[in-house]
Design a protein around this nucleic acid. Structure first.
Lengths: 194, 194
DNA sequence: GCCCTAAATTGAACCGCGTTCAATGAGAGG
DNA sequence: CCTCTCATTGAACGCGGTTCAATTTAGGGC
Protein backbone atom coordinates (compact mmCIF):
# COMPACT_ATOMS: atom_id res chain seq x y z
CA UNK A 1 0.00 0.00 0.00
CA UNK A 2 1.47 3.30 -1.07
CA UNK A 3 -1.27 4.73 1.11
CA UNK A 4 0.42 7.94 2.18
CA UNK A 5 0.89 9.06 -1.40
CA UNK A 6 -2.62 8.08 -2.42
CA UNK A 7 -4.07 9.91 0.55
CA UNK A 8 -2.30 13.12 -0.35
CA UNK A 9 -3.38 12.67 -3.92
CA UNK A 10 -7.00 12.37 -2.80
CA UNK A 11 -6.61 15.35 -0.50
CA UNK A 12 -5.26 17.50 -3.32
CA UNK A 13 -8.11 16.36 -5.50
CA UNK A 14 -10.58 17.44 -2.85
CA UNK A 15 -8.84 20.78 -2.41
CA UNK A 16 -8.91 21.39 -6.14
CA UNK A 17 -12.61 20.61 -6.35
CA UNK A 18 -13.33 23.05 -3.56
CA UNK A 19 -11.28 25.81 -5.13
CA UNK A 20 -12.87 25.14 -8.49
CA UNK A 21 -16.31 25.26 -6.93
CA UNK A 22 -15.54 28.62 -5.38
CA UNK A 23 -14.26 30.02 -8.64
CA UNK A 24 -17.18 28.77 -10.67
CA UNK A 25 -19.70 29.99 -8.12
CA UNK A 26 -18.15 33.41 -7.79
CA UNK A 27 -16.98 34.22 -11.31
CA UNK A 28 -18.39 31.62 -13.63
CA UNK A 29 -17.04 28.63 -15.46
CA UNK A 30 -14.83 30.70 -17.74
CA UNK A 31 -12.82 31.92 -14.76
CA UNK A 32 -11.45 28.46 -14.09
CA UNK A 33 -7.72 28.60 -14.86
CA UNK A 34 -5.18 25.88 -14.24
CA UNK A 35 -2.48 28.31 -13.13
CA UNK A 36 -4.75 30.02 -10.61
CA UNK A 37 -5.80 26.64 -9.28
CA UNK A 38 -2.20 25.57 -8.79
CA UNK A 39 -1.31 28.81 -7.05
CA UNK A 40 -4.28 28.65 -4.69
CA UNK A 41 -3.85 24.98 -3.95
CA UNK A 42 -0.15 25.52 -3.32
CA UNK A 43 0.94 22.90 -5.80
CA UNK A 44 2.72 22.91 -9.11
CA UNK A 45 0.88 23.31 -12.37
CA UNK A 46 1.53 19.76 -13.45
CA UNK A 47 0.39 18.29 -10.13
CA UNK A 48 -3.17 19.12 -11.05
CA UNK A 49 -3.02 16.56 -13.79
CA UNK A 50 -1.94 13.90 -11.38
CA UNK A 51 -4.83 14.55 -9.03
CA UNK A 52 -7.47 15.08 -11.67
CA UNK A 53 -7.67 14.11 -15.34
CA UNK A 54 -8.15 17.60 -16.65
CA UNK A 55 -10.12 20.77 -15.97
CA UNK A 56 -13.20 19.35 -17.59
CA UNK A 57 -13.28 16.50 -15.10
CA UNK A 58 -12.94 19.06 -12.35
CA UNK A 59 -15.94 20.93 -13.67
CA UNK A 60 -17.87 17.69 -13.83
CA UNK A 61 -17.10 17.09 -10.19
CA UNK A 62 -18.33 20.55 -9.25
CA UNK A 63 -21.42 20.01 -11.36
CA UNK A 64 -22.18 16.79 -9.53
CA UNK A 65 -22.22 18.72 -6.27
CA UNK A 66 -24.34 21.48 -7.71
CA UNK A 67 -26.82 18.96 -9.03
CA UNK A 68 -27.12 17.32 -5.63
CA UNK A 69 -27.65 20.70 -3.97
CA UNK A 70 -30.28 21.51 -6.56
CA UNK A 71 -32.15 18.28 -5.92
CA UNK A 72 -32.04 18.81 -2.18
CA UNK A 73 -33.16 22.41 -2.51
CA UNK A 74 -36.16 21.56 -4.66
CA UNK A 75 -37.17 18.69 -2.40
CA UNK A 76 -36.86 20.85 0.66
CA UNK A 77 -38.98 23.63 -0.80
CA UNK A 78 -41.77 21.37 -1.96
CA UNK A 79 -44.30 20.77 0.82
CA UNK A 80 -45.88 17.36 0.57
CA UNK A 81 -49.17 18.32 2.18
CA UNK A 82 -50.53 20.59 -0.52
CA UNK A 83 -52.49 20.00 -3.70
CA UNK A 84 -50.62 18.43 -6.62
CA UNK A 85 -50.78 21.55 -8.74
CA UNK A 86 -49.43 23.63 -5.89
CA UNK A 87 -46.60 21.17 -5.48
CA UNK A 88 -45.73 21.52 -9.14
CA UNK A 89 -45.68 25.29 -8.89
CA UNK A 90 -43.62 25.12 -5.71
CA UNK A 91 -41.07 22.92 -7.44
CA UNK A 92 -40.82 25.26 -10.40
CA UNK A 93 -40.33 28.23 -8.10
CA UNK A 94 -37.70 26.35 -6.15
CA UNK A 95 -35.91 25.53 -9.40
CA UNK A 96 -36.05 29.17 -10.37
CA UNK A 97 -34.80 30.44 -7.05
CA UNK A 98 -31.97 27.95 -6.89
CA UNK A 99 -30.90 28.94 -10.39
CA UNK A 100 -31.08 32.62 -9.52
CA UNK A 101 -29.17 32.28 -6.28
CA UNK A 102 -26.56 29.96 -7.80
CA UNK A 103 -26.50 31.44 -11.24
CA UNK A 104 -22.91 30.70 -12.18
CA UNK A 105 -22.86 27.19 -10.77
CA UNK A 106 -26.22 26.44 -12.33
CA UNK A 107 -25.10 27.68 -15.73
CA UNK A 108 -22.00 25.50 -15.50
CA UNK A 109 -24.32 22.49 -15.37
CA UNK A 110 -25.26 23.15 -18.98
CA UNK A 111 -22.31 25.15 -20.30
CA UNK A 112 -19.88 22.32 -19.92
CA UNK A 113 -18.83 21.01 -23.28
CA UNK A 114 -19.42 17.43 -24.12
CA UNK A 115 -17.94 15.72 -27.12
CA UNK A 116 -20.86 15.31 -29.52
CA UNK A 117 -20.73 11.53 -29.34
CA UNK A 118 -20.10 10.70 -25.71
CA UNK A 119 -23.07 10.36 -23.41
CA UNK A 120 -23.66 12.30 -20.22
CA UNK A 121 -22.11 10.73 -17.12
CA UNK A 122 -24.16 8.29 -15.11
CA UNK A 123 -24.62 10.53 -12.08
CA UNK A 124 -26.07 13.20 -14.38
CA UNK A 125 -28.76 10.84 -15.59
CA UNK A 126 -29.39 9.62 -12.05
CA UNK A 127 -29.90 13.10 -10.65
CA UNK A 128 -32.06 13.96 -13.64
CA UNK A 129 -34.23 10.91 -12.94
CA UNK A 130 -34.54 12.16 -9.39
CA UNK A 131 -35.87 15.51 -10.52
CA UNK A 132 -38.19 13.82 -12.99
CA UNK A 133 -39.49 11.56 -10.26
CA UNK A 134 -40.34 14.61 -8.16
CA UNK A 135 -42.46 15.96 -10.96
CA UNK A 136 -43.97 12.63 -11.85
CA UNK A 137 -45.71 12.29 -8.48
CA UNK A 138 -48.08 15.24 -8.51
CA UNK A 139 -48.44 15.00 -12.25
CA UNK A 140 -49.84 11.48 -12.10
CA UNK A 141 -52.17 12.55 -9.31
CA UNK A 142 -53.48 15.24 -11.60
CA UNK A 143 -53.82 12.82 -14.50
CA UNK A 144 -54.85 9.46 -13.09
CA UNK A 145 -56.07 8.15 -16.42
CA UNK A 146 -53.10 9.14 -18.56
CA UNK A 147 -50.99 6.37 -20.07
CA UNK A 148 -47.60 5.91 -18.39
CA UNK A 149 -45.88 6.69 -21.64
CA UNK A 150 -47.68 9.99 -22.10
CA UNK A 151 -47.07 10.79 -18.47
CA UNK A 152 -43.35 10.30 -18.95
CA UNK A 153 -43.42 12.58 -21.96
CA UNK A 154 -45.40 15.16 -20.05
CA UNK A 155 -43.00 15.02 -17.14
CA UNK A 156 -40.08 15.65 -19.39
CA UNK A 157 -41.90 18.42 -21.23
CA UNK A 158 -42.79 20.11 -17.97
CA UNK A 159 -39.25 20.06 -16.71
CA UNK A 160 -37.85 21.29 -20.00
CA UNK A 161 -40.43 24.03 -20.23
CA UNK A 162 -39.70 25.32 -16.76
CA UNK A 163 -36.01 25.12 -17.50
CA UNK A 164 -36.48 27.20 -20.64
CA UNK A 165 -38.48 29.86 -18.83
CA UNK A 166 -35.89 30.14 -16.09
CA UNK A 167 -33.01 30.08 -18.57
CA UNK A 168 -34.24 32.90 -20.77
CA UNK A 169 -35.38 34.93 -17.79
CA UNK A 170 -32.02 34.81 -16.08
CA UNK A 171 -30.17 35.42 -19.33
CA UNK A 172 -31.59 38.89 -19.58
CA UNK A 173 -32.05 39.41 -15.89
CA UNK A 174 -30.00 42.56 -16.05
CA UNK A 175 -32.24 43.87 -18.83
CA UNK A 176 -35.30 44.38 -16.65
CA UNK A 177 -37.53 41.41 -15.86
CA UNK A 178 -37.75 41.19 -12.08
CA UNK A 179 -37.76 37.68 -10.59
CA UNK A 180 -41.36 38.02 -9.45
CA UNK A 181 -42.43 38.23 -13.07
CA UNK A 182 -40.75 34.92 -13.74
CA UNK A 183 -42.55 33.39 -10.81
CA UNK A 184 -45.83 34.75 -12.12
CA UNK A 185 -45.03 33.34 -15.54
CA UNK A 186 -44.40 29.92 -14.08
CA UNK A 187 -47.55 30.06 -12.00
CA UNK A 188 -49.64 31.28 -14.90
CA UNK A 189 -48.53 28.60 -17.31
CA UNK A 190 -48.38 25.67 -14.93
CA UNK A 191 -51.88 26.19 -13.59
CA UNK A 192 -53.22 26.01 -17.10
CA UNK A 193 -52.03 22.46 -17.38
CA UNK A 194 -54.33 21.11 -14.72
CA UNK B 1 -14.34 59.36 -51.76
CA UNK B 2 -11.91 56.59 -51.11
CA UNK B 3 -14.58 54.38 -52.63
CA UNK B 4 -12.46 51.65 -54.14
CA UNK B 5 -10.82 50.79 -50.86
CA UNK B 6 -14.04 50.93 -48.95
CA UNK B 7 -15.72 48.71 -51.48
CA UNK B 8 -13.07 46.06 -51.18
CA UNK B 9 -13.26 46.34 -47.43
CA UNK B 10 -16.99 45.74 -47.55
CA UNK B 11 -16.50 42.87 -49.98
CA UNK B 12 -14.00 41.22 -47.70
CA UNK B 13 -16.37 41.69 -44.80
CA UNK B 14 -19.10 39.98 -46.76
CA UNK B 15 -16.78 37.14 -47.76
CA UNK B 16 -15.74 36.64 -44.17
CA UNK B 17 -19.34 36.50 -42.98
CA UNK B 18 -20.14 33.87 -45.58
CA UNK B 19 -17.16 31.73 -44.69
CA UNK B 20 -17.94 32.10 -41.00
CA UNK B 21 -21.53 31.11 -41.65
CA UNK B 22 -20.40 28.00 -43.47
CA UNK B 23 -18.02 27.06 -40.69
CA UNK B 24 -20.54 27.61 -37.94
CA UNK B 25 -23.25 25.73 -39.80
CA UNK B 26 -21.05 22.78 -40.62
CA UNK B 27 -18.87 22.38 -37.56
CA UNK B 28 -20.23 24.64 -34.85
CA UNK B 29 -19.22 27.91 -33.32
CA UNK B 30 -16.08 26.50 -31.77
CA UNK B 31 -14.66 25.70 -35.19
CA UNK B 32 -14.37 29.37 -36.08
CA UNK B 33 -10.65 30.14 -36.30
CA UNK B 34 -9.09 33.38 -37.45
CA UNK B 35 -6.25 31.65 -39.29
CA UNK B 36 -8.62 29.39 -41.23
CA UNK B 37 -10.75 32.36 -42.11
CA UNK B 38 -7.76 34.25 -43.48
CA UNK B 39 -6.61 31.28 -45.51
CA UNK B 40 -10.03 30.66 -47.01
CA UNK B 41 -10.70 34.31 -47.72
CA UNK B 42 -7.27 34.65 -49.29
CA UNK B 43 -6.23 37.52 -47.08
CA UNK B 44 -3.70 38.03 -44.34
CA UNK B 45 -4.50 37.29 -40.74
CA UNK B 46 -4.47 40.93 -39.74
CA UNK B 47 -6.73 41.98 -42.59
CA UNK B 48 -9.65 40.34 -40.82
CA UNK B 49 -9.40 42.94 -38.10
CA UNK B 50 -9.66 45.71 -40.62
CA UNK B 51 -12.85 44.29 -42.11
CA UNK B 52 -14.55 43.30 -38.86
CA UNK B 53 -13.94 44.26 -35.27
CA UNK B 54 -13.24 40.76 -34.04
CA UNK B 55 -14.50 37.21 -34.32
CA UNK B 56 -17.33 37.89 -31.94
CA UNK B 57 -18.71 40.56 -34.21
CA UNK B 58 -18.49 38.09 -37.04
CA UNK B 59 -20.52 35.59 -35.06
CA UNK B 60 -23.06 38.27 -34.30
CA UNK B 61 -23.42 38.94 -38.00
CA UNK B 62 -23.98 35.25 -38.71
CA UNK B 63 -26.47 35.09 -35.87
CA UNK B 64 -28.44 37.98 -37.33
CA UNK B 65 -28.83 36.01 -40.55
CA UNK B 66 -29.77 32.84 -38.71
CA UNK B 67 -32.38 34.71 -36.72
CA UNK B 68 -33.92 36.14 -39.87
CA UNK B 69 -34.01 32.71 -41.48
CA UNK B 70 -35.61 31.33 -38.34
CA UNK B 71 -38.33 33.98 -38.38
CA UNK B 72 -39.02 33.40 -42.05
CA UNK B 73 -39.12 29.64 -41.57
CA UNK B 74 -41.59 29.77 -38.71
CA UNK B 75 -43.80 32.23 -40.53
CA UNK B 76 -43.75 30.13 -43.66
CA UNK B 77 -44.69 26.95 -41.82
CA UNK B 78 -47.57 28.49 -39.92
CA UNK B 79 -50.78 28.35 -41.96
CA UNK B 80 -53.04 31.29 -41.22
CA UNK B 81 -56.30 29.49 -41.97
CA UNK B 82 -56.30 27.03 -39.10
CA UNK B 83 -57.50 27.18 -35.52
CA UNK B 84 -55.41 29.26 -33.10
CA UNK B 85 -54.27 26.25 -31.11
CA UNK B 86 -53.19 24.50 -34.29
CA UNK B 87 -51.25 27.58 -35.29
CA UNK B 88 -49.43 27.56 -31.99
CA UNK B 89 -48.52 23.90 -32.35
CA UNK B 90 -47.42 24.49 -35.95
CA UNK B 91 -45.14 27.31 -34.84
CA UNK B 92 -43.61 25.19 -32.12
CA UNK B 93 -42.99 22.37 -34.57
CA UNK B 94 -41.48 24.79 -37.04
CA UNK B 95 -39.19 26.11 -34.32
CA UNK B 96 -38.18 22.59 -33.46
CA UNK B 97 -37.53 21.57 -37.05
CA UNK B 98 -35.53 24.66 -37.82
CA UNK B 99 -33.41 24.09 -34.74
CA UNK B 100 -32.89 20.44 -35.66
CA UNK B 101 -31.99 21.17 -39.27
CA UNK B 102 -29.75 24.10 -38.36
CA UNK B 103 -28.47 22.77 -35.10
CA UNK B 104 -25.05 24.40 -35.07
CA UNK B 105 -26.22 27.75 -36.33
CA UNK B 106 -29.15 27.71 -33.95
CA UNK B 107 -26.94 26.89 -30.99
CA UNK B 108 -24.62 29.74 -31.92
CA UNK B 109 -27.57 32.10 -31.34
CA UNK B 110 -27.37 31.33 -27.65
CA UNK B 111 -23.79 30.15 -27.18
CA UNK B 112 -22.29 33.50 -28.06
CA UNK B 113 -20.80 35.14 -25.05
CA UNK B 114 -22.01 38.51 -23.97
CA UNK B 115 -20.30 40.63 -21.38
CA UNK B 116 -22.57 40.39 -18.33
CA UNK B 117 -23.41 44.08 -18.37
CA UNK B 118 -23.94 44.93 -22.01
CA UNK B 119 -27.40 44.46 -23.49
CA UNK B 120 -28.28 42.32 -26.47
CA UNK B 121 -27.97 44.10 -29.83
CA UNK B 122 -31.00 45.90 -31.19
CA UNK B 123 -31.65 43.51 -34.07
CA UNK B 124 -31.79 40.67 -31.58
CA UNK B 125 -34.59 42.33 -29.64
CA UNK B 126 -36.36 43.24 -32.86
CA UNK B 127 -36.32 39.68 -34.19
CA UNK B 128 -37.41 38.42 -30.79
CA UNK B 129 -40.35 40.81 -30.83
CA UNK B 130 -41.24 39.42 -34.24
CA UNK B 131 -41.37 35.86 -32.91
CA UNK B 132 -43.34 37.00 -29.88
CA UNK B 133 -45.80 38.79 -32.15
CA UNK B 134 -46.37 35.57 -34.06
CA UNK B 135 -47.32 33.80 -30.86
CA UNK B 136 -49.33 36.68 -29.52
CA UNK B 137 -51.88 36.49 -32.35
CA UNK B 138 -53.36 33.03 -31.81
CA UNK B 139 -52.84 33.29 -28.08
CA UNK B 140 -55.03 36.35 -27.78
CA UNK B 141 -57.66 34.65 -29.94
CA UNK B 142 -57.65 31.78 -27.47
CA UNK B 143 -57.88 34.15 -24.52
CA UNK B 144 -60.02 37.10 -25.53
CA UNK B 145 -60.66 38.18 -21.94
CA UNK B 146 -57.10 38.01 -20.66
CA UNK B 147 -55.43 41.25 -19.62
CA UNK B 148 -52.78 42.49 -22.08
CA UNK B 149 -50.18 42.25 -19.39
CA UNK B 150 -50.92 38.63 -18.59
CA UNK B 151 -51.05 37.90 -22.29
CA UNK B 152 -47.57 39.30 -22.72
CA UNK B 153 -46.33 37.16 -19.87
CA UNK B 154 -48.02 34.12 -21.31
CA UNK B 155 -46.52 34.76 -24.72
CA UNK B 156 -43.08 34.94 -23.28
CA UNK B 157 -43.63 31.89 -21.15
CA UNK B 158 -44.85 29.92 -24.13
CA UNK B 159 -41.85 30.80 -26.24
CA UNK B 160 -39.42 30.07 -23.44
CA UNK B 161 -41.10 26.79 -22.67
CA UNK B 162 -40.97 25.61 -26.26
CA UNK B 163 -37.37 26.74 -26.45
CA UNK B 164 -36.50 24.72 -23.36
CA UNK B 165 -38.17 21.58 -24.68
CA UNK B 166 -36.36 21.87 -27.99
CA UNK B 167 -33.07 22.70 -26.32
CA UNK B 168 -32.97 19.74 -23.98
CA UNK B 169 -34.28 17.40 -26.65
CA UNK B 170 -31.59 18.31 -29.14
CA UNK B 171 -28.90 18.24 -26.47
CA UNK B 172 -29.36 14.54 -26.03
CA UNK B 173 -30.60 13.84 -29.51
CA UNK B 174 -27.80 11.34 -30.02
CA UNK B 175 -28.82 9.52 -26.87
CA UNK B 176 -32.09 8.19 -28.20
CA UNK B 177 -35.10 10.49 -28.24
CA UNK B 178 -36.37 10.56 -31.82
CA UNK B 179 -37.62 13.93 -33.13
CA UNK B 180 -41.20 12.68 -33.35
CA UNK B 181 -41.21 12.30 -29.57
CA UNK B 182 -40.29 15.95 -29.22
CA UNK B 183 -43.10 16.90 -31.56
CA UNK B 184 -45.51 14.82 -29.51
CA UNK B 185 -44.25 16.48 -26.35
CA UNK B 186 -44.88 19.91 -27.82
CA UNK B 187 -48.31 18.92 -29.06
CA UNK B 188 -49.25 17.31 -25.76
CA UNK B 189 -48.28 20.24 -23.62
CA UNK B 190 -49.46 23.05 -25.86
CA UNK B 191 -52.94 21.65 -26.32
CA UNK B 192 -53.37 21.60 -22.57
CA UNK B 193 -53.07 25.35 -22.50
CA UNK B 194 -56.25 26.00 -24.42
C1' DG C 1 3.11 61.70 -65.01
C1' DC C 2 4.72 62.48 -60.12
C1' DC C 3 4.73 62.99 -55.47
C1' DC C 4 2.54 62.80 -51.01
C1' DT C 5 -0.33 61.32 -47.72
C1' DA C 6 -3.66 58.32 -45.72
C1' DA C 7 -5.29 54.04 -45.75
C1' DA C 8 -5.09 48.98 -46.20
C1' DT C 9 -2.28 44.92 -45.99
C1' DT C 10 1.06 41.89 -44.18
C1' DG C 11 2.74 38.34 -41.09
C1' DA C 12 5.75 38.00 -37.29
C1' DA C 13 5.25 38.57 -32.53
C1' DC C 14 2.66 38.84 -28.11
C1' DC C 15 -0.21 36.94 -24.77
C1' DG C 16 -3.02 33.69 -22.25
C1' DC C 17 -4.11 29.15 -21.51
C1' DG C 18 -4.49 23.91 -21.30
C1' DT C 19 -1.65 20.23 -21.37
C1' DT C 20 2.75 17.47 -21.59
C1' DC C 21 7.12 15.66 -20.19
C1' DA C 22 12.03 15.07 -18.98
C1' DA C 23 14.19 15.86 -14.85
C1' DT C 24 14.12 15.78 -9.95
C1' DG C 25 12.56 14.39 -5.44
C1' DA C 26 10.57 11.53 -1.92
C1' DG C 27 8.90 7.41 0.27
C1' DA C 28 8.29 2.29 0.85
C1' DG C 29 10.30 -2.32 0.77
C1' DG C 30 14.32 -5.13 0.99
C1' DC D 1 21.64 2.13 2.60
C1' DC D 2 20.03 1.10 -1.79
C1' DT D 3 16.58 0.86 -5.22
C1' DC D 4 12.53 1.24 -7.54
C1' DT D 5 8.35 3.30 -8.14
C1' DC D 6 5.48 7.03 -8.08
C1' DA D 7 4.58 12.07 -7.21
C1' DT D 8 6.14 16.62 -8.13
C1' DT D 9 8.09 20.30 -10.61
C1' DG D 10 8.00 24.03 -13.93
C1' DA D 11 9.82 24.91 -18.39
C1' DA D 12 8.22 24.14 -22.86
C1' DC D 13 4.73 23.04 -26.52
C1' DG D 14 0.73 23.95 -29.27
C1' DC D 15 -2.98 26.56 -30.25
C1' DG D 16 -5.61 30.55 -31.04
C1' DG D 17 -7.11 35.63 -30.77
C1' DT D 18 -5.31 39.97 -31.27
C1' DT D 19 -1.80 43.63 -32.10
C1' DC D 20 1.47 46.45 -34.53
C1' DA D 21 5.62 48.19 -36.98
C1' DA D 22 6.77 47.87 -41.51
C1' DT D 23 5.36 47.81 -46.19
C1' DT D 24 2.38 48.28 -50.07
C1' DT D 25 -1.34 50.39 -52.38
C1' DA D 26 -4.19 53.93 -54.17
C1' DG D 27 -6.36 58.70 -54.50
C1' DG D 28 -5.82 63.52 -55.12
C1' DG D 29 -3.29 67.79 -56.09
C1' DC D 30 0.15 69.85 -58.95
Amino acid sequence: MATAAQTRRAALRETLIEIAERHITQNGLSSLRARDLAKEAGCALGAIYNAVGDLNELTLEVNARTFKRLGAYVTQHTPSDIAPIDRIVAMAWAYHHFAAENHNAWRALFDIERAPDEAAPAWYLTEMQGLFALIHGPLSELNPDQSPEELALLTRALFSGVHGIVLLSLDQASAGLPPEETDRMLDLILRRLS
